[in-house]
C-alpha cells in the first residue's frame, strides 16, 4: 500500500466512532484520534466492555450482547494488543457535526497561516 493511500485511509477514520478488540478480550469503543506506524491507537471518550473473547472470523457483538460497560476516557491501545478494528457503519450525528466544525476550523487555520506567510513574504 502506498504511503499516501495509507495516510488517506487513516485520516478518513479520524473523529469516527470505532471499536478496537484488545488481546485480553475487552472491546474498547471510542472516537479514533491518533495512530502511528506501530498501530498504537489513541481513542477519546472511550468505553470498555468485557465480553467473550472475539476472534477474527466472528462478527462484532451487538451492543446488547456486551456486558460491564465502563467509561475510561482517553486511552492508548498498544499495537501489539490490537486484535480487531471496526468502524461504525452509521456515525452518530454529533460526531459528524464535530467533524464538520473541525474541518472548518482547519480550513480557517490554514487560511490564516497562508495569509501570515504572504504578509511575511511581502515584508
Amino acid at each position: 500500500m502506498a504511503e499516501e493511500e495509507a495516510r488517506s485511509m487513516l485520516k478518513g477514520l479520524l473523529g469516527k466512532l470505532v471499536r478496537v478488540g484488545v488481546s485480553d478480550g475487552r472491546i474498547v469503543q471510542g472516537v479514533f484520534s491518533c495512530v502511528d506506524n506501530g498501530c498504537n491507537i489513541v481513542l477519546t471518550h472511550a468505553n470498555e466492555w468485557k465480553g467473550p473473547p472475539i476472534t477474527g472470523a466472528d462478527a462484532w457483538p451487538k451492543d446488547d450482547e456486551l456486558e460491564f460497560r465502563r467509561p475510561i476516557g482517553l486511552v492508548m491501545i498498544p499495537g501489539d494488543h490490537v486484535s480487531r478494528v471496526g468502524v461504525a457503519a452509521q456515525q452518530p450525528q454529533h460526531l459528524l457535526d464535530a467533524q464538520a466544525r473541525s474541518n472548518s476550523d482547519e480550513d480557517v487555520s490554514q487560511q490564516l497561516q497562508e495569509t501570515l506567510s504572504l504578509q511575511g513574504n511581502a515584508a
Partner: peptide, 26 residues
C-alpha cells in the same frame, strides 16, 4: 445500536505503510 464494519486488515496494512515516527492525528 449500529452495525460495524470490520477494517482490521486495511487498518493494520495502512499503519504498517506509514513512515516510522509519523502520527496520523486528529
Amino acid at each position: 445500536m449500529c452495525d460495524w464494519e470490520d477494517v482490521t486488515g486495511a487498518f493494520k496494512r495502512s499503519c504498517a505503510a506509514l513512515p516510522l515516527g509519523e502520527l496520523v492525528r486528529d
